[in-house]
Amino acid sequence: MKVDIERQIQQSAEETAGKIRDLLAARKVFAVNLISSPGSGKTTLIESAIEALRGKKRVSVVEGDIETDIDAARIRKHGVQVHQINTRSSCHVPPFLLLSALDHIDLDATDLLFVENVGNLVCPAEVPLGEDLRVVALSVAEGDEKPLKYPLVFKTSDILVITKTDLLPYVKFDPGRVKAAARAVNPRVEIFEVSAVTGSGISSFLERIEELCGRKTG
């Protein structure tokens, strides 16, 4: 006997993302979904943002990792609200875990929320988190062909941050090639080049984040 079902699987991903979006709108929080390969410098970027925006924007952080609260411990040292998600077998932060993580963050005391996704250029790109801004980071040590090999994350991101530019003398990486490849998949992407070691480019990236955040949170 055939039983018709016609039901969306994981419809809840979009639905839950919608709930997150509504919650963040009601509480006037600007959320950034930060995606990159493992080790491209996501946590380092968030640490720079916390210090640079201190006194201007109240920053809170949700850390997504398969295991451990190592990254949350790094963020906690900067004295801001942070909640760690452990995704276990999941290669990305699913929206239902983010929604329950937001119970642990005082959203009324937050202007800017960073969600550090699990280090992975593939699956997080497919999963909406109800974010206002999607940022993909790519370090110069990873090779300049990545936007061609992992197009979805570059296509769906608002901002590309090329990180670790202090390493450019030591690696074969042509920033022009990355920018052209990223713009080919996403003509409207904004691109910043930064180094957490020299501090180069960090302030223009963070000024842009502050400006976009201000449009929502005032």
Partner: peptide, 20 residues
């Protein structure tokens, strides 16, 4: 490159067959 992708994102269970 000025394209919008529509459709192709279904993930739907249509039916099951059960053996009564």
């Amino acid at each position: 490159p000025a394209v919008k992708v529509e459709g192709g994102d279904a993930l739907r269970i249509l039916s099951i067959d059960i053996d009564d």
